[in-house]
């Protein structure tokens, strides 16, 4: 079938204003949006720029806005979206070229929540024990692949990029809810900040956008609750 694609292009060297570029591509209904982008890049226009790696939704490289919604280009099939297909870079982060945005502010926010296990006890020479029930409490948020689909779908983040954003809170949740971790006090202080979890206005955009199916809004609510209980 023939697909019409409309892609927002931007080239800091030659096209500072940006423009919509139109393409026609032959595709099977089972092909991924990423496959269409590759057909253009490899056989029509080598300058089209986007990030990609694993091509099956686990590395988090290719979040973009497809027909108005955040998704991973490798995780959505042609038959699942309406034709013509409109593709733009994710919103709220500076665009560097075509569908590539500056991820540094996103990773800076991630690093602010101390995304690592804090536990100063001597662990001994075998594993720490953890019950399956305790392990389940943070199962959902361990799935995060840091693709930024949630954070860049958040209306609060669009208007205030100082907001730490859903992805960082998800990664705080992963440790706050881990029975082995002793760093919650510090992390929850960060969450109490004016740019922390309480900036969330429960729009649920993040939950819809997450390609891993994480209940992002619920995780943010869990973190807010922990913050209040530990106050």
């Amino acid at each position: 079938m023939e697909i019409d694609l409309k892609i927002l292009r931007y080239d800091p060297e030659n096209d500072k204003k940006g423009h919509w570029e139109y393409y026609k591509v032959d595709a099977e209904p089972e092909e991924r949006i990423l496959d269409l982008l590759h057909k253009i890049k490899w056989f029509e226009d080598g300058s089209l720029s986007f990030r990609k790696s694993c091509a099956h939704g686990v590395c988090g490289s290719d979040a973009m806005v497809v027909n108005g919604e955040n998704m991973l280009a490798c995780q959505v099939l042609v038959k699942e979206v309406s034709n013509p297909i409109k593709i733009e870079p994710i919103r709220g982060l500076p665009v560097l070229k075509d569908l590539i945005v500056d991820m540094e502010p996103f990773f800076d926010s991630y690093k602010k929540v101390m995304p690592f296990l804090i536990n100063d006890d001597e662990p001994g020479d075998r594993e720490r024990l953890q019950s399956p029930e305790d392990r389940d409490k943070f199962e959902d948020t361990t799935k995060c692949i840091l693709c930024a689909a949630c954070t860049t779908s958040c209306p609060v983040f669009w208007t205030a990029d100082s907001y730490i954003g859903p992805a960082a809170i998800v990664n705080a949740h992963r440790f706050v809810m881990d029975s082995r971790d002793q760093g919650s006090k510090q992390r929850l202080e960060i969450m109490k900040d004016v740019n922390g979890a309480f900036r969330c206005r429960t729009a649920f955009n993040c939950t819809s956008a997450c390609p891993r199916g994480i209940q992002v809004t619920k995780a943010i609510e869990d973190v807010k609750r922990e913050t209040l209980l530990n106050n």
Binding site: L117, R128, S131, R135, R174
Partner: peptide, 22 residues
């Protein structure tokens, strides 16, 4: 054996048995 235990100490969320072990 030590490599797995070390990853657990660094926080790796292994699935668990009822005993709490990996």
């Amino acid at each position: 054996i030590d490599a797995v235990v070390e990853l657990e100490h660094w926080g790796l969320p292994f699935s668990r048995l009822e005993s709490g072990k990996i």
